[in-house]
Design a protein around this nucleic acid. Structure first.
Lengths: 244, 244
DNA sequence: AACTTATTGTCTCATTTTGTGACAATAATA
DNA sequence: TATTATTGTCACAAAATGAGACAATAAGTT
């Protein structure tokens, strides 16, 4: 065995790993299950730490591509709707002990060892809107679970991830009338009630049925299809889809 | 002279300089001169390159503090109104030749020399709103001018700085009714017409006078003061200030 | 001093948008 | 056949906005 063949199991510097140092992204992945707005949360092995799915940017990769790559790995989806909402750069978010704990518990680090992931990071926050039913979330090597949580019932999140969620949600609310939010959270065809529930879940409040319908239909962005028979004891609703 | 005393004139690595590598910020500094919306633009020595004022983040400094520090150095102002609007991370913005030209022309680099500023940067965009009259903009060591330009008459800007300005302006427009924009662009006391002109300059369109007054006064955010005699041949307008 | 000018503060009325409730239609259930 | 819950639609009230009118007035002009 030559000297050259002796190598560490993991890259301990950013350069070795091929990533830009000090820069990360975290993603708030929203899905709608028909009733409530949910987001994907990771739980790390052997810790009680919950976190947003995140990742790093390769040296020759754009920031947007890095986020798309990470989301594809986790959800299998290709054309995900993505919005960047804020970049987090406080000193308070630099807590190497937390990262160290995660890596030690996963055997990705020896105690006392230096590692680029233990340095300070500035993180760019993105949110994604995906179709809840098309996804089977995959945990990564550091985490043993990747599960949906209602935005109102999140576990305690590490670092500033709770603040990230709140800021993502606020941005989503601000954008609700600008960016055709429903198209990405709903299935191809949906009822007016489902669409209204998406709005209510995002805004966190009830809205008036008649006013909502009047406004949405007035936008001329929906196509009306045949009625949907739900097996419920009342008039069947129409189905709608978005006009491309 | 000991070996230790032999040092380079400038730090060629990020570590030597005390800054985080690969991370920058750029600022779009808005001011209102009573008629049009303007922004501060730098021109670099011996080049025809125009750019937004930017800077870097120290290893033990928060992102926000870094931007405040840079803006204070350039304007002398302390409590600047700041909003982060977007983070730019494309590969197209990595053009080391441009940076190299600036540094060579300033004598901050020898030809062919390596330097951390020539590596790839991801830049966080901030916009600031300042009182036009309180500021005497200062160029930095790399630039020989720092001047106000109307947003509609900008010189060609380097890299993606034009895109940054457009995105800042769009965010400012989106925030105009949420964040009390006028308070930061106007002097302590102002007329309703001046306030309306701020709105028109930001939105880029004329607004109806009566509707504007009705809406603004309906918000109960303004205090009415004595009249202002302008020396003009017509009825004198009231002065207003924002209620703290 | 009287007239002119440009702008201001305030009203009024038409138009549009939104809030609120009512009601018949209807798919399944009892 | 009656009951139930929800849907699509309409009608009217209330609020917000668009559009214009007009007297008041500070200075300039004659």
């Amino acid at each position: 065995m030559t000297k050259r063949a002796i190598h560490k199991k993991y890259a301990n510097t950013a350069k070795e790993s091929g990533f830009l140092p000090h820069i990360a992204y975290d993603s708030v992945i929203f899905g709608f299950d028909g009733e409530t707005l949910k987001i994907l949360i990771l739980e790390y092995h052997n810790t009680k730490l919950f976190a947003l799915p995140g990742g790093f940017v390769k040296v020759h990769e754009s920031l947007n591509d890095a986020v798309r790559r990470g989301l594809h790995d986790r959800t299998g989806l290709e054309n995900i709707y993505l919005e960047q909402f804020h970049t987090f750069g406080s000193l308070e978010r630099f807590v190497p002990a937390t990262i160290e704990q995660i890596m030690l518990n996963n055997g990705h680090l020896n105690s006392g060892e230096e590692h680029w992931l233990l340095e300070r990071f500035i993180s760019v926050g993105y949110y994604a809107l995906i179709n809840f039913n098309e996804v089977n979330p995959q945990p990564d090597t550091l985490s043993d679970r990747c599960e949906w949580y209602p935005v109102n019932e999140l576990p305690p999140l590490m670092l500033d991830h709770h603040e990230m969620v709140q800021k993502a949600l606020q941005t989503l609310r601000d954008n609700i009338n600008k960016k055709l939010v429903g198209a990405n959270l709903l299935p191809e065809k949906f009822t007016m009630k489902q669409y209204q529930q998406v709005y209510e879940a995002i805004l966190g409040e009830k809205i008036r049925r008649t006013t909502f319908q009047r406004q949405i239909l007035g936008l001329d962005i929906l196509k009306r299809h045949e009625k949907q028979f739900l097996g419920k004891a009342h008039k069947a609703p129409f189905l709608y889809s978005f006009i491309k």
